[in-house]
């Protein structure tokens, strides 16, 4: 997050911002599309077997093994490439559940208010009161290690963020005059919600979701790193970094998966930023 924050230019005259963000946008799209392509096609062209021995143990990078081999003699690059098949689906799955749940509850809270609002928001507050990593660890630990349980833990940690965001958006838009205009036009409450309020609430949700792709992958890897997520011998990035940590002098073992985590996190951040520039009317130039 901090990297992206310091790179982000908040200039009111965004001639420069736009050019900068279009460079980062191209980079981000390139990384994300490549990762998706790798995830889908890797079985067809995988250089080695991701879980089988490919050469001698603990080889430094060479022409045969570009990123070296690990303690069991597996090719690190191959495993890092296969890692996309764990990390991308987990991000899609976690956000695919957490965002709709959060949006739904947040909308209900903001639009109907009263008891629904109180119930949803207090539940969200309780969840947000714990540090997210600790909470995810506790949940994952109590459910037992495994990738699916990690995802469930992350969903529980993530939905309140979207519930809050959506609630704030709905409350803001609800106050606008055009919503009163819809009431006077004779629109019913569901038409008001779906036609006059919700279409104006999406952009921050979209921006946040894009940025969170990186965070989810980071946290999922973190859980795997401490042994709660994917289990060996699965080529999951966090797991691989953990293996690298136990063979500390073979620095190359953690390098490829670490870079992969870094690239996907920063790209999702860049993409979110670029999206914000496009969607946020305040940064738009007068025609």
């Amino acid at each position: 997050m901090t990297v992206a924050a310091s790179l982000k230019s908040k200039s009111i005259w965004p001639g420069i911002t736009l050019r900068w963000s279009s460079a980062t946008l191209i980079f981000a799209l390139f990384v994300i599309i490549s990762f998706i392509v790798i995830a889908v096609t890797i079985p067809l062209w995988s250089p080695y077997d991701p879980v089988g021995m490919a050469g001698r143990r603990l080889q430094p990078p060479s022409a045969l093994h570009w990123c070296g081999t690990d303690a069991l003699g597996r090719d690190v690059l191959t495993r890092a490439l296969w890692g996309t098949r764990y990390s991308l689906p987990i991000a899609v799955f976690v956000l695919g559940v957490a965002v709709p749940v959060g949006v739904l509850l947040g909308t209900a809270a903001g639009f109907f208010g009263g008891i629904i609002d109180n119930a949803v928001m207090r539940l969200a507050d309780v969840t947000l009161a714990f540090p997210p990593v600790l909470l995810a660890m506790a949940i994952a630990a109590s459910l037992g290690p495994g990738l699916v349980n990690t995802a469930v833990a992350l969903i529980i940690v993530w939905w309140p963020i979207y519930a809050r965001l959506m609630r704030a958006q709905v409350l803001n838009v609800k106050k606008l005059d055009h919503v009163d205009a819809a009431v006077i036009a004779g629109a019913g409450r569901f038409r008001i919600l779906f036609k006059h309020i919700m279409p104006l609430c999406w952009s921050p949700i979209l921006v946040n979701t894009t940025m969170d792709v990186g965070l989810v992958i980071l946290l999922a890897s973190g859980l795997s790193f401490i042994g709660l997520g994917a289990q060996p011998p699965a080529p999951e990035w966090g797991q691989m970094v953990a293996e690298g940590a136990s063979n500390f002098y073979s620095w190359w073992i953690a390098l490829a998966p670490g870079m992969a985590i870094f690239l996907i996190s920063i790209s999702s951040n860049f993409l979110g930023d670029a999206l914000r520039d496009v969607l946020d009317p305040q940064v738009k130039l007068p025609a």
């Binding site: 055009h178 205009a181 009431v183 006077i184 004779g186 104006l200």
Partner: peptide
Amino acid sequence: RPFRRHVQLVFQNPYASLHP
């Protein structure tokens, strides 16, 4: 709701009162 057609409103703010 059916009564609303008889009494309409024109708003002060010509920007916020139209769905963008």
